[in-house]
Design a protein around this nucleic acid. Structure first.
Length: 638
RNA sequence: GCCGAAGUGGCGGAACUGGCAGACGCAGCGGACUCAAAAUCCGCCGGGCUUAACACCCGUGUGGGUUCGACUCCCACCUUCGGCACCA
């Protein structure tokens, strides 16, 4: 009879031999066609979970398949090692340094990946918290800075009271912190931003290059960028020199404007109410709206409240006077922070006008029916022909959009404008465990970038970790106080660190030349290997990580640092691993640990089951019996 | 509300371009081996009507339609999941 399938002996024997022979070490170049297979690198949280096993098993199959087909395959692994959990662990179990915690976890997870038998070239491994790595993260920040793509501005930011840190819009989920779910508040802080909005159009247009991406991911990015075409129109304030500029996608309805609404934070508001008798009342209202958390502020459930400023503006087309107010539903960040109210042709405006008794003025009539403002039960938002609109009467409203904008442009009271929902990328974090932003503030010279030869700006090791709201680095005088590289006078270092999404926006270039010291990478090697032929990871990165990586690639392309316009040719978003119909999570207690499975059945059983049980892009329902079935199968094969 | 995806046996899921629905695995049932059990091996395994067997009928979320032929295409609807959400 055949010997029993002793998976333990077999797996260890071969894994040792792979290491001995450096079987998966990949030379930098080859005559064979290249293939770059990449799985999203993990955050070293402690141990591998089934999602990792699935992700890396899929990648391993692709890499091995392409190798067997005679291709020269790059299949590397590394660590997304900066981030909050390390710091939280340090805060929670005092005495553990985030660096030690992270390094420990990496050691564990590396061991587990080796046990799984994934065919990585471990010679190319790195962690984003290595100074030799974040040196180049900082260098890249400087490149963006020199391009005018990094800027600092005071702005209301999302503040998580629990994590005592600022969150990107992207990290706010349903008004709560992405990590701890705590309701997010608003605070004014000076923050560093990247001008990703400058690239909005290219990010949108180049999506046609991404044939190997799931349609779903492309649509999500498209919606996130949220391009909209319209016009800016200037309304003069009656009896003053000031101008209110609105953004609208419906310039065809300008004749129907019966009120005007500014965001409470709009810069003009202060000026308009100064000295007015209602000043106090208005201030109070503004304060109330501002203190509202993001969740209350943006919820559709919340009642729309407006407050007249006691000022009128002039409709540039009719010359008529229109009352100006402020309201909680108008957002400063979108468009111009100001909306014109057209109750007859916008449902939201219709409801608002009902509440505050603003007139409903019909300016678009559908063919065949006559709309009467007194009888309208809802706004008419569809197509029609212009009425009550002076010289534009009779025009189909689609044509009127263009005609009216052109007319306003000639009068210099309006212009075509494209707006995006996408906001600039906020990269400042008031946290310790991240790459320091390489900037020095000098009383004489102002904002001074750290000279490239002085990089990296090292993260000091000896720091207190307490969520005081002050960045921990600010408590270290020997870090903060420095000399200005420009004038040699006293300078203070920036104490914010960078969003970890920044570290993960370029790591796939680093694998091509992981020990490079003259630059972030060797261009010849990047040109050889990039773009990544197959990228594999969870859908949860459909927007953030993938959009940021695309943005970075375009900036790098413009700087001549890379030759590819897009980073990832093909993308596979694998489904989640579920148990009992829910995502595996500690809180639900339905976690199956890869370790146990490997001990009981061996890595091959684990890999086989996870590949076999569901198609890669679909969610996978965990089944203990299915695992046993795979194990039995392997026994039979053996 | 808007955008998107998915609904197939007891379960996970196959079915590539409109051509034998249910591959493969799990569970279940029957058998072999065994004193017995586990393991292993063999057979059956959507429902109905039959049943010695052939044959026949119904079946891919619901209701219509196109077609010689529909899980597959078209229209309407229902359910579930994911994303966005006062975006002017």
């Amino acid at each position: 009879m055949k010997a029993k399938y002793d998976f333990n002996a077999v797996e260890i024997k071969w894994q040792d031999r792979w290491v001995e022979n450096e079987l998966y070490a990949v030379p930098d170049f080859s005559d064979r066609p290249k293939y770059y297979c990449l799985e999203m690198f993990p955050y070293p949280s402690g141990k591998l979970h089934m999602g990792h096993v699935r992700n890396y098993s899929i990648g391993d199959v692709v890499a091995r398949f392409k190798t067997m087909r005679g291709m020269h395959v790059l299949h590397p692994m590394g660590w997304d090692a900066f981030g909050l959990p390390a710091e939280n662990a340090a805060i929670k179990h005092g005495g553990i340094h985030p660096a030690d915690w992270t390094i420990d976890n990496i050691k564990n997870m590396r061991e587990q990946l080796k046990q799984l038998g994934i065919s990585y070239d471990w010679n190319r491994e790195f962690a984003t918290c290595d100074p030799e790595y974040y040196r180049w993260t900082q260098w890249l920040f400087l490149q963006l800075y020199h391009q005018g793509l990094a800027y600092k501005k005071l702005s209301a930011v999302n503040w998580c009271p629990d994590c005592a840190t600022v969150l990107a819009n992207e990290q706010v989920v349903n008004g709560g912190c992405e990590r701890c779910k705590k309701t997010v508040e608003r605070r004014e802080l000076a923050q560093w931003f990247f001008k990703i909005t400058d690239y909005a159009d290219r990010l949108l247009q180049d999506m046609e290059l991404l044939e190997g991406w799931p349609e779903k991911v492309k649509i999500m990015q498209e919606n996130w960028i949220g391009r909209s075409e319209g016009a800016e129109i200037d309304f003069k304030i009656d009896g003053a020199k000031d101008i209110v500029t609105v953004y609208t996608t419906r310039p065809d309805t300008v004749f129907g404007v019966t009120y005007m609404v500014l965001a409470p934070e709009h810069p003009l508001v202060e000026k308009l109410i100064a000295g007015s008798e209602k000043e106090e009342q208005i201030r109070e209202f503004i304060h109330k709206v501002k203190s509202l958390s993001e969740i209350d502020r943006t919820s559709t459930e919340v009642e729309k409240i407006g407050l007249p400023l006691g000022v009128n503006c002039i409709n540039p087309l009719t010359g008529g006077k229109i009352p100006v107010l402020i309201a909680n539903y108008v957002l400063l960040e979108y468009g111009t922070g100001c909306v014109m109210g057209v109750p007859a042709h916008d449902q939201r405006d219709f409801e608002f006008a009902r509440k505050y008794n603003f007139p409903v003025r019909v300016v678009i009539q559908p063919a065949g029916i006559e709309l009467k403002q007194e009888e309208m039960q809802s706004a008419y938002e569809k197509e029609g022909f212009l009425v009550n609109s002076g010289d534009f009467n009779g025009l189909p409203n689609k044509e009127a959009i263009r005609a009216i904008t052109v007319y306003l442009e000639e009068k210099r009271q309006g212009r075509f404008r494209v707006t995006y929902r996408l906001r600039d990328w906020l990269i400042s974090r008031q946290r310790y465990w991240g790459a320091p932003i390489p900037i020095i503030y000098c009383d004489v010279c102002g904002v001074v970038p750290v000279p490239e030869k002085e990089l990296p700006v090292l993260l000091p090791m000896n720091v207190e970790f307490k969520p005081t709201g002050q960045p921990p680095l600010a408590d270290r005088p020997d870090f903060v106080n420095t000399t200005c590289p420009n004038c040699g006078g006293p300078g203070k270092r920036e104490t914010d660190t960078m969003d970890t999404f920044m570290c993960s926006s370029w790591y796939y270039y680093r694998y091509t030349s992981p020990r490079e010291t003259e630059g972030p990478w060797d261009k010849a090697k990047v040109d050889y290997w990039l773009p990544v032929d197959q990228y594999i990871g969870g859908v949860e990165h459909a927007i953030l990580h993938l959009l940021y990586s695309r943005f970075f690639t375009k900036v790098l392309y413009d700087l001549g640092l890379v030759s590819n316009q897009e980073p990832f040719t093909k993308l596979l978003t694998q489904g989640m691993v579920l148990k009992d119909g829910a995502k595996m999570s500690k809180s639900k207690g339905n976690v199956v640990s890869p370790e146990d499975i490997i001990v009981r059945f061996g890595a091959d059983t684990a890999r086989m089951f996870i590949l076999f049980a569901a198609p890669p892009e679909r969610d996978l329902e965990w089944s203990d019996q299915g695992v046993e079935g795979c194990f039995r199968f392997l026994n039979r094969v053996w």
